[in-house]
Every structure is written in C-alpha cells, then in structure tokens.
Design a protein around this nucleic acid. Structure first.
Lengths: 118, 118
DNA sequence: TCAATACTTAAGCAACGACTTGACTTTATG
DNA sequence: CATAAAGTCAAGTCGTTGCTTAAGTATTGA
C-alpha cells in the first residue's frame, strides 16, 4: 500500500487503534503527561510514547515539553475535520434519497416517505 | 494486540484505509455493484471484495445479492455513531475550557475568553 | 554531586492486513 | 448447451504496525 496518506486518513488511522482511542478519551478530560496517559495500560513507556507520536503526527493531539515532562493535549480541529467529512458523505447520500422520494412522488403520486434508512 | 474491537473501533478501522474511504465516497453517490465499486482501482476483484467485507463487517455498508451481482449501499447509522463519539469527546473537552474560563473570570476579573483553540 | 525520574532512540520480533493467484460456484446469454 | 460474467474461497507473500528490551539524554531533588 502506498503511504500517500492525506490528513483525514492519518486522523482515522490514529483513532482506529483501541488503545489510542482510550487515550483520546482520557485526554478529553484535560491535558496529561505521557506517563500519566499510559498509566492505565499494561505497556512500556516507550510503547505509550509511540502512540502519542502517532496521535501527534495525525494532528489529534499537541504536546509540549516543560522540564522533563511532556504534556499532551487534544487538538479538536482534527476531529472536527473528520466529523465534517462524515457529514458531507451523509449529506450527499441523503440528497439521493430526497431525489428518489421526489421522483417517486412525481411518477406515482405522493406516498410514504423513503428518505430515511431503517 | 487483543482483538476485542468494539463497534466504533471496527468502523474507524474500516474508514482509515484510503481505498475504502474512496469506496465510501463513491457509495455516497448511490448503490453500486462490487465490480463497479472496484473499477477505479488497479486491483483484483478478490481484493475489492475483501474491502467490501471489511466495510460490511463494520456496518458501514450493507449488501445484497440479486442474481450474480452483489449491490453495495452505505449504511449511514455507522457514521452517525462515529460522529457522535467525536462530538462527545469535543463536548467534554470544551466543558473543561468553559470551566477554566469561569475559574479565571472568578479569580482575576473577566478577561479575553480562552474557550476556543487556535 | 548523585541518583531517581521522565522521557527518547534504536533494534528487533510477531501479528496483522492488503494484495495476489488459482480454483471454484452461480447466473446470465448467444 | 457452452461460454462468459460476477462473485467467492483459500493459500501464500510481503510490508506495516504494536510491542518489547536495552541503552541513552535531560531534569530534578536530596
């Protein structure tokens, strides 16, 4: 597979990992250090750092080092962009349903709406 | 890594793959057959089918076979659930900002708001 | 200053995931 | 019926990823 990831690809890839997802959940309560972030997991600090680096490379978190501790913080704009991508797909498809509904209404008179999936 | 994926994990994993993301974009224009879905990609039909199976297992698409052709269709509820997860993380964190803002306002009088990231 | 703390880096390994090819199975269609 | 079309299944290849351990580097506190 070619590694020509665009921004959304990197964000989704970062969030697809269960451990990283739980880290993000933790970070939504506020900023924490790398070791504090990894504390719930049975995992070396090096592994925790690798997850943090993936999240940071994706733009999902920002980090800053003060003294010897690196503090991690969620960057919401990445998730906003991803939500937006999903909203766009939904909007496009929902438009299709609307057009189909209108077509059916025009062809055979108005009937029950088909514009929502079960 | 333990394979104890929950629903959102499977959805995000399915959408994290660039090829599958483009398939989803195609499907947001309406339902297509497996071979039509794979037509833009330089890839065997077997590979296309594997992607479809991942998307279906994640609940991102539903498929149905009529005669010899299997038609694929987006299921929006999966993406809605994922959007919701992201909205929840954002909401929690934004609440933190609000609390911090209120704290700062109470401690030193009102100043410029910190409730939004750059 | 010495030792503990908090990361960081690098190398290596095993599991996973995206592809492939090749052999079928099922529907159409001439 | 014979052949093509559309999809399915099963191995097997190979790069990526999540993790480990081991050996650093700064910082901090007694």
């Amino acid at each position: 597979m070619l590694q020509q990831f665009d921004s959304i690809d990197r964000i989704l890839h970062a969030l697809a990992e269960p451990t990283r997802r739980r880290m993000v959940e933790r970070l939504s309560d506020g900023p924490v250090s790398v070791s504090a972030l990894g504390e719930p997991f049975d995992m070396s600090l090096a592994a925790v750092l690798q997850h943090v680096q993936v999240l940071e490379a994706a733009g999902v978190v920002r980090t800053a080092k003060i003294g010897r501790v690196r503090t991690c913080q969620l960057d919401l704009s990445a998730m906003r962009a991803t939500e937006q991508w999903m909203r766009d797909r939904r909007a496009t498809l929902e438009q299709q349903f609307d057009r189909l509904g209108a077509f059916l209404d025009a062809t055979h008179g108005p009937s029950s709406s088909d514009s929502e999936l079960p």
